[in-house]
Write a protein that binds this DNA or RNA. Structure first.
Lengths: 121, 121
DNA sequence: TGCAAATATGCAGCATCTTGCAAATGTGAG
DNA sequence: CTCACATTTGCAAGATGCTGCATATTTGCA
């Protein structure tokens, strides 16, 4: 009865595709509707080649679908439920600690970039 | 406003922990209640050292919690919702194709292991 | 104390993923 | 047909993850 192991592998494959911040952000963008590669690349501030590679991965796993419009390739979520389901995971993740940590970093950076009169300490 | 990127990274970290069939099966086992390492290792047919490593990872990300009982270490899900949420992903994954593929493999294996009278072909 | 069971940890080889860049392909406009 | 734009693909180096095995560490018991 290897079905348990097979299902686990299938799920693990899915999770591996989602285990990358850029790809998650792509899915989040596509949640708002169809987008072409250049638009996505601008939104994420990434080179189009990288975005294209990520999209190829997601497409290979049937998470997104593609259609051509003129010389653009327009992508959309194959199953919009995917994006909803991902957001359901937010309570599982310790976002608060990370945001606070980022704010500390921002604060530290602000101190560095705007040194006071007696910056010699 | 890097909060979007931060949340994406946090989610990606979570997905990375879940992107391994053994760890998913561990979570599935723990869904049914507390288990010690040896029991888990037997259930998954894995060496205890491997199970221990997986559990250490999951524990580092606060997905499981540990308690000692005699000389055993008993693990439990930190947030039982995790297991439910994972199962919600099943419709997103093409399990059917994989199961059929596995059945084809089984069928092929059966043909090989039980060769007919004219097996030379 | 000393032994054995239960877990955990360290490490090296291997596999996989990521990244940046260059080059190739495809496609509409003139 | 040719050009320019949009997208994809190929590749090598570096980073990260996995596996198997050996060795610690911890704890209960005699």
């Amino acid at each position: 009865m290897p079905s348990r192991a097979i299902v686990s592998r299938a799920l693990a494959d899915l999770f591996r595709q989602l285990a990358h911040a850029d790809r998650l952000r792509l899915i989040e963008e596509l949640r708002q509707g169809e987008r072409d590669v250049t638009t996505l690349a601008q939104a994420l501030a990434l080179p189009t080649s990288r975005v294209s590679q990520h999209l190829a991965l997601l497409r290979a796993h049937r998470l997104v679908e593609e259609r051509r419009d003129g010389r653009n390739h327009v992508y959309r979520l194959a199953q919009p439920f995917l994006a909803d389901w991902i957001l359901e995971a937010l309570p599982l993740v310790d976002v608060r600690a990370r945001l606070e940590e980022a704010e500390h970093i921002d604060a530290a950076r602000a101190l560095w970039s705007a040194p006071g009169p007696n910056s010699s300490h």
